[in-house]
Design a protein around this nucleic acid. Structure first.
Lengths: 150, 150
DNA sequence: CCCTTATTGGCAGGACCTGCCAAAATTAGC
DNA sequence: GCTAATTTTGGCAGGTCCTGCCAATAAGGG
């Protein structure tokens, strides 16, 4: 992955629908090697896909909550059960395994506070082996970037 | 925003480079009204852009840290100074204004622990008016979704 | 210095986008 | 419940863009 690849990645993070022609101009290449590099980055898994970035509020989901979860036990079974449940629940946009007390940190997106209560009761409390929950509500998003540093 | 618009949004969140023809098939429309709906969603700001999704680790940035920041004062000046600094710092991928003690929660991405120390010393400690910092390290990503629920 | 390998640029056929207009569907008013 | 106005749709045509192939160039090793 040389400097040209990095330029390609940066450009596509900023605008994932850039045409190959425009992209090739930005990175000083002709279209065909440029396209080949993009395909290689995709095959190598560096570029993991493309997504439309949607405004949560405009879409009708103004509430963001960070939910910290602690498990009762940390054996493989407990962990697998929890992570499989997380994968299935659409309201969970992100989930990180954290250092410290082996917690999980989840970013949850819902339409309202009432829906959040519903989410906790109907989705989270159904998962076995949870020791504790801690919800932190976000007033709003100050920054969200798609472009990795470097 | 009717059910067809939502189908379009869901499809483009899953694959932001879907051709208009393929998209129009998925939502049972002919290409031209489909394209018009997409453009309208873009103009309305519901679709805020398109981005390549890049694998942090494959790109050479395996370390994710959640940094909680508390400000000394919460006047407009303090807040503006902090948020302007956040906007400028590339390592900060996300920043949320949190309920509770008026904290900020930042997701920071760096290449190594040494770089994180550098980031705190050279970027964060330079910002005036910070009362306290609390760093939580992530072992890894369990889930990351681009598709909003509903 | 030559040979091997990797990378590039150009080309051609085909797919796709996009702006226009007429047709169809939906809505509102009466 | 009918008509008129408005919105949404589908089709078409010109032009742009993608993509797979081949030769040419550049880079690296013996």
């Amino acid at each position: 992955m040389d400097e040209t690849d990095k330029k390609i990645i940066r450009a596509l993070q900023r605008n994932g629908r850039l045409s190959n022609q425009d992209l090739s101009e930005k990175v000083n290449l002709s279209p065909s090697p440029c396209l080949r590099r993009v395909r290689n980055l995709e095959k190598a898994g560096v570029i993991d896909g493309y997504a439309a970035i949607v405004d949560q509020e405009a879409y009708g989901l103004p509430v963001t909550v960070f939910l910290q979860v602690r498990l009762e036990r940390h054996g493989q079974d407990s962990v697998d059960t929890f992570e499989a449940a997380v994968a299935r629940i659409d309201e969970i946009m992100e989930c990180y395994l954290m250092a410290g007390d082996r917690d999980y940190l989840l970013r949850v997106v819902v339409a309202s506070l009432a829906d959040y209560e519903d989410f906790i009761r109907r989705r989270i409390h159904k998962i076995p082996g949870i020791a504790s929950l801690d919800s932190s509500f976000a007033f709003g998003v100050v920054k969200r970037s798609q472009v990795l540093p470097g």
